[in-house]
Simulated scan of single mutants.
Amino acid sequence: MTGHFRYTSPQPPKSATGVVADVYAQLATDFGIERASTFVVLSASPPLLTATWALVRESLLAGHVSRTEKEVVAAGVSLANRCAFCVVAHTVLLHATGDHRLAETIGGGGTPDAPGHRELLAWGKDMSIPQPFPAGHAPEHIGTALAFHFVNRVVSSLLTEDMLPGGAQKYRLVRSAAGRSLARTVRRELRQGASLALLETEGAEPAWAAGSPVGTAFGALRTAAHLGAGLLSDEDAAFVRESVAGWDGVTALPLNSAELPGRVERPGARLALLAARAPYRITDEDVAAWRVPPFTDHCLVHLIAFGAFCAVERIEANLPTHSKELA
């Protein structure tokens, strides 16, 4: 397969077997996009694919919180992370909810009219501020936001910026039409937990998830993503963790930063740190310097996932401990 994929060559979804095929089947019915490249790019690692899909499904797609509200949060995260692909994707999905003005306002970098949407968008851009939702909504809102902090980094690292062929997403009518084609699927109510049987890893559930399916999926993704640390020396893995732990969770890492390891001297640490703190700055040369035999697509996906999830954990650590009380 070519097109969206920059550094990997995933097998065509039609040739998938086992749990990968099962994920694609759920994607088609629950997400409405059978060959969503945001998930196909992870197919070289079934543990990463299943956990990422489960976290997105259980937080963004299923549950009781308004899908429109969660799409606003996801768009805010994507804007903060400069993930052009994902900003367009959430613009299209907001069109699918039926709120076309909101979709174009957010997609164009504007401010929503409704105070609730303004607050959610601002929180998506900076999760360290007070949470503008009731405590009971935390698993879905926080799960959605952290899911896309991970997905944005994978997408910016491994996919092109164009969501649609030929850059067609730049046209409003195309974005609107794409959203309308997904409207029926987006407006369906999905049973929570249906993706959990696909998981190939498990891990500790975070307190904010309150024992929900979102927490199970998040724990599984944490375990799967940290497998990528094994591709680095102990020294380099510790360096990446320490650099991300000392980061404010917002500021991008400049390419001339003294923190950034050299491409020749420590290519793996450089790639993982960029995935965490500035994935849109990963270059062909960065990938080529590290990806030499015996490293494969499977290895590259795991290294990027390790860096990406280190960032997720740093952002999670910045979460305030209070939310709006239920009215």
Rank of each mutant, 00 (worst) to 15 (best):
M1F: 08
M1Y: 03
R6H: 07
T8K: 11
S9H: 10
S9M: 08
P10V: 11
Q11F: 02
Q11V: 15
P13H: 00
G18N: 02
A21P: 01
A21N: 01
A21Y: 00
Y24V: 00
A28M: 05
F31V: 14
G32P: 07
G32K: 09
G32R: 10
G32A: 01
G32L: 10
A36Y: 07
T38N: 13
F39D: 08
V40M: 02
V41M: 09
A44M: 01
P46L: 00
T50E: 00
A51V: 02
A51D: 08
T52H: 11
W53Y: 15
V56C: 05
R57M: 12
L61E: 08
S66F: 03
R67L: 09
R67E: 06
V72A: 10
G76V: 08
N81I: 03
N81Y: 10
R82C: 12
V87G: 09
V87E: 02
A89N: 14
A89Y: 12
A89Q: 13
H90F: 05
T91Y: 06
R101L: 12
E104A: 05
I106D: 09
G110T: 04
G110I: 01
P112F: 08
P115K: 09
G116W: 03
D126Q: 15
S128L: 09
S128H: 11
I129Q: 14
F133S: 02
F133V: 06
P134S: 15
G136P: 00
G136S: 14
T144V: 08
H149R: 15
H149K: 00
F150G: 04
V155Y: 09
S156L: 13
S156I: 04
L158H: 05
T160R: 14
T160Q: 05
D162Q: 15
M163L: 15
M163N: 09
L164I: 03
L164M: 09
Q169T: 03
Q169E: 15
A177M: 14
A178M: 15
A178E: 11
L182R: 15
R184D: 11
R184M: 10
T185G: 07
R188T: 13
R188E: 08
R191H: 12
R191F: 04
G193V: 11
G193D: 07
A194P: 06
A194L: 12
A194V: 14
L198I: 01
L199N: 02
E200G: 04
E200N: 01
A204R: 13
W208E: 08
S212I: 10
T216D: 07
R222N: 10
A224P: 03
A229T: 01
G230N: 13
E242M: 01
V244E: 06
V244C: 03
G246I: 04
G246A: 13
W247G: 01
G249W: 05
T251S: 15
L253I: 02
P254W: 04
L255S: 11
S257V: 00
G262K: 06
R270H: 05
L271I: 01
E285G: 12
D286R: 11
A288H: 14
V292G: 05
P294E: 06
F295V: 03
T296H: 06
C299R: 05
C299I: 00
L300A: 13
L300R: 04
F306T: 08
G307L: 04
I315R: 14
N318P: 00
T321I: 08
K324C: 11
L326I: 10
A327D: 12
